[in-house]
Design a protein around this nucleic acid. Structure first.
Lengths: 243, 243
DNA sequence: ACAAAAGTGTTCCTATTACACCCATGG
DNA sequence: CCATGGGTGTAATAGGAACACTTTTGT
């Protein structure tokens, strides 16, 4: 670990007592597998809280851009750089870290589980997908961060078309429905859901069928997100209301 | 300014480079006056950015609970302890503060302008209500914080019954409508708005009429919020959807 | 030919919108 | 009695919810 350069207080001693805090970023990385929402947890390999489960997280040097740090943490934990992320808020309880005042800035993130390579050689932690709803007791205040992330997930998904980052690039409408059913915690009507989804006019039918198709019956059609149109409409403030 | 006690890093030098940051809280305090949404600004009386407008804000000692600090800042700025507040997010650009790495945790807040006593003797800043939409160039990254707060205000008000903290305890339905028109930026149908508002069944008609009533015509009825019911329903996850 | 999953329309009902007049009060 | 703002109902429309059968494909 190399000491970095960063600006120091310049205006006299009166400010120095303030410049004694640290901060970190913590990531609630959501995945979707077996019709369940998952969260990526790591087992800590060092103190404090050694051998306990925790969120992927890390301290941030005073001169480092926080977005860069959280991107690095998500990439290291998942092995992919293809993800969506957004800040939740700062978690700032003075006792949340045993070594001093460490404010953690929480993020939630969506990745496609199939893109991920966990436990790669250069990862110091062993990481694993854990069912949201079966999260064990975590280090620090990480359970609180997971709860806040869960609320955000719920709020986002119950009003907007979002979370497609949790699926492969090519996906079936059924997958989207199952994702929504897992997020919202209840079943949805197939016909109404499809109508609503397609009425947003941001999905493109590829014409391809899912393959391989181990199930009996007809193989479903694959769709992709019309990303340019989606980003454009988002930039214009469109909401993609689902309900 | 008195140095406080706070926990220091305990586990050796490797963590010390991290414990050199400061953090602050910043408040976007919304008010409502003359059918306009207002934001409370202060003129800074010290460096950096002396004599520039800024948000009420302050550094936080490493051992201080951040909620206490933001409450104190809002109380000092407004002269009242009767307000609603919520965290927006952390603002963490490494160059946002000229004196070093200072992460600011932004809050937005609703107060009733009539409850406020600005420029009280013990206030070091002179403060004033500024029309949202006519905000001048502010110190630090405070314009960005105001924008984020504005987006939150919009998102909240366009889907929920909220922001009644901006009005007096006893208010007319017209006031609520004008508040919404100011927040959303367009006019609303009087009858539809009243029907929708009353259908939430959390307003109580006091029977009193507004007084004094300088306008011609009939004096309107005053309503109050059924706060216990409102809090209970909020706790139960009810959303008070308006549109 | 059968089992399993995909894909598709219609009806009913609720919720939202658009719209105009009478009432109470003070000057 | 007139000017001003408060307060009220209804009809048309759009959107959401409930519901079942036909098609395709692999075994």
């Amino acid at each position: 670990m190399v000491q970095q350069q960063f600006p120091l207080p310049e205006m006299g001693d009166e400010f120095n007592p303030f410049f004694q805090s640290a901060f970190s970023v913590s990531a609630v990385i959501f995945g979707f597998q077996d019709k369940r929402i998952k969260v990526l947890l790591v087992k800590r390999s060092r103190e404090p809280f050694i051998n306990q489960f925790a969120l992927p997280a890390g301290l941030v040097y005073p001169n480092v851009v926080i977005e860069d740090r959280i991107n690095g943490i998500i990439q290291q934990a998942t092995g992919t750089s293809h993800f969506y992320k957004k800040q939740i808020r700062a978690f700032a309880d003075p006792t949340r870290h045993p070594m001093g005042r460490v404010i953690s800035i929480g993020y939630y993130s969506f990745v496609n589980v199939n893109d991920c390579k966990l436990n790669s050689k250069d990862s110091i932690h062993t990481s694993s997908w854990c069912d949201l709803g079966m999260i064990p007791h975590l280090a620090f205040d990480h359970n609180e961060i997971v709860e806040a992330a869960h609320r955000r997930l719920l709020a986002k998904m119950s009003s907007q078309l979002a979370g497609l980052e949790l699926l492969p690039d090519k996906f079936t409408l059924k997958m989207v429905q199952e994702l929504y059913e897992a997020s919202l915690g209840h079943e949805l009507d197939k016909r109404n859901f499809r109508r609503k989804l397609l009425s947003q006019e941001i999905l493109i039918e590829t014409g391809e069928q899912q393959s391989p198709w181990e199930e009996s019956g007809k193989a479903p059609l694959l769709y992709i997100l019309d990303k340019p149109k989606y980003e454009q409409m988002k930039a214009d403030g469109h909401q993609f209301l689902l309900f």
